[in-house]
């Protein structure tokens, strides 16, 4: 059980072939990857496609609630979904460090397989490289994805007007806190668990109300604060959110309080932020709450006329600006 990745696994020879056959094609070789063509052949049902790419370098590779594999699937699936698309195909680029335990690689590939099935996406093309020990941190993944636009969605910040509602589909900041807790060796009982999961069903589930949905994003790096600021910068509107309506998990919240971090700045990996008309906000929340990934969905705020500002009504009724974080999240002295 001590098998490890060797440089020759990436050399193009027999070992490379064996790795691809036994580890990759056994999991993903039934669709467009069958026969290992240089490029996948895909048939589209519509002419409007969405195309996205993302790189995954998370450390550690495994964390409470997931690993780099399902994260790499969910990340790109979610980037497609929030543009109003139905995710169809993914590419899978693996960069492996010499010495990587094969058993760990298998766990990551299994997670990719399960996540792809759950998201209804097919791994259509891919590449595997091995680099010398020390040239990467165990395992890096890039995924690119193609999705088909769902008819009816016409998202854009230009349509947002004062009085529109801000919705989130789940608790905020869980992924970032889960990764931080293991990366820094913080041993916490009932600590935060990553929310790494797909949001495509949340999007597809409300497609009937697409005409009244103005904009969607997933609050990954930089958290909700960054997404809301990106939505309002240079726009003739602002956003007011209410602290008492923000959903946080007990584990994430406890750790953030302890370290002096603001959960609004911490990444989620399975959450959707939406601006929609007040006509459909309740219906969307009701639909989301029927899905496991939308059980904690809430309306958290409103679009306001104050141009370009994101303002938080605090739990005690005071007001403050919500700013974007500066650089990496650093715990404080006391």
């Amino acid at each position: 059980m001590n098998e490890r990745i060797l440089l020759s696994h990436g050399g193009g020879g027999r070992l490379s072939h064996q790795l691809i056959q036994t580890e990759i094609l056994s999991r993903f070789g039934h669709g467009p990857l069958h026969g290992l063509p240089d490029a996948a052949s895909l048939l589209l049902d519509t002419t409007r496609i969405r195309f996205s790419t993302d790189g995954f370098v998370v450390h550690p590779l495994e964390f409470p609630g997931g690993n780099i594999g399902d994260l790499a699937v969910h990340g790109t699936v979610n980037d497609l979904a929030v543009t109003g698309a139905h995710p169809r195909w993914l590419s899978l680029g693996l960069i492996l460090e010499e010495g990587l335990p094969l058993v760990l690689l298998r766990r990551v590939l299994d997670a990719i397989q399960t996540a792809a099935q759950n998201c209804g996406v097919v791994i259509a093309t891919g590449d595997t490289k091995v680099v010398r020990r020390g040239q990467c941190d165990g395992l890096y993944i890039t995924t690119s994805g193609i999705g088909e636009a769902i008819p009816g969605f016409s998202l854009g910040l230009g349509q947002v007007v004062a009085g529109d509602r801000i919705l989130v589909s789940g608790t905020l900041g869980d992924h970032g806190m889960a990764v931080l807790s293991v990366r820094e060796g913080l041993k916490i009982e009932n600590g935060p668990v990553s929310d790494s999961r797909p949001v495509h069903r949340l999007v597809a589930g409300v497609a009937a109300m697409a005409a009244e949905i103005r904009f969607m994003r997933d609050p990954t790096r930089g958290g909700l604060a960054t997404v809301l600021n990106e939505m309002t910068v240079g726009q003739p509107f602002g956003i007011l959110i209410r602290a008492c309506d923000l959903p946080f998990s007990p584990g994430g919240r406890a750790l953030a309080e302890m370290l002096g971090l603001d959960l609004l700045h911490v990444a989620s990996e399975g959450c959707l932020v939406m601006i929609c008309s007040p006509n459909v906000s309740d219906a969307i929340l009701a639909r989301w709450r029927e899905l496991p990934e939308g059980r904690e969905a809430r309306e958290i705020g409103t679009v306001i006329r104050q141009s370009g500002r994101v303002i938080l009504e605090t739990v005690i009724g005071g007001h403050r600006v919500v700013d974007v974080p500066s650089g990496e999240l650093l715990p404080r002295i006391c």
């Binding site: 002096g260 303002i311 005071g318 007001h319 403050r320 600006v321 404080r332």
Partner: peptide, 19 residues
């Protein structure tokens, strides 16, 4: 720069923003 610094607090939260 400090997370407890008064300039950082003022910049980050611009406290006293009236609704």
């Amino acid at each position: 720069v400090s997370s407890e610094g008064s300039c950082a607090a003022e910049f980050k939260y611009a406290s006293g923003v009236s609704s």
